[in-house]
Design a protein around this nucleic acid. Structure first.
Length: 192
DNA sequence: TTAGGGTTACAA
DNA sequence: TTGTAACCCTAA
């Protein structure tokens, strides 16, 4: 509103993730007070980090910005926040690096919400999530689908049928050349 | 203090 | 113009 928007830095995001990992979702004040994160998040209020967490997990948006924003918000909220998902994502970029992929069944959130939010509507989002997972895993030989699935599970609580979604997406990414598929000696499909 | 809904700024 | 992220407001 009258103040210029202050974009979140990767450090702040990492601190937030770590804070959530440690204290759990919803304990914004506690996170803010944690000496380990307070310095990084000193310019953020509990509301700021709450909103940021909401955005970070609102993987998507639907069709109209406004509605989307709302949808995203709802998703976030509807999303299970029971556990601490935590950890930090390390992010990355990848457009040509190695990544591997393998998927495993996961369970948690309602597939509808997750699906509509991540897979269906935000392709790019899911792409980014996968890329992010690969980069974060940073495995020299590429990441297995399982690893990626686990990573996404921890970060985004996908639905139980996420397996299909991820498989399809990986196929799409390998087809488009964004990811390289590698067959390892373990007979697993990898992507680099 | 937190969650949820809504608004505004900014980038593509 | 549209989508996304940051920020504000209010209720519980």
């Amino acid at each position: 509103m009258g103040v210029p928007k202050q974009r979140w830095t990767s450090e702040e995001e990492a601190a937030l993730r770590a804070g959530v990992a440690r204290h759990g979702v919803g304990n914004w004040r506690t996170i803010l007070k944690d000496p380990e994160f307070s310095s990084t998040l000193r310019y953020r209020s509990n509301v700021d980090i709450k909103d940021k967490w909401r955005n970070m997990n609102a993987i998507v948006t639907t069709s109209g910005s406004r509605d989307k924003a709302k949808a995203a918000v709802k998703k976030t909220k509807a999303a299970p926040k029971n556990h601490d998902h935590s950890m930090a994502i390390s992010t990355v970029a990848s457009d040509g690096e190695d990544e591997i992929v393998d998927v495993k069944p996961i369970a948690s959130v309602s597939s509808e919400a997750w699906n509509s939010s991540i897979s269906k509507r935000s392709h790019s989002r899911l792409d980014n999530i996968i890329m992010e997972a690969v980069k974060s895993l940073n495995e020299p030989t590429g990441s297995h689908r399982t690893s990626i699935a686990n990573y996404i599970e921890e970060q985004y609580w996908p639905p139980s049928d996420f397996d299909h979604i991820l498989s399809a997406k990986l196929r799409e990414l390998t087809t488009s050349g964004k990811l390289i598929k590698v067959i390892s000696i373990f007979n697993q499909t990898k992507t680099l």
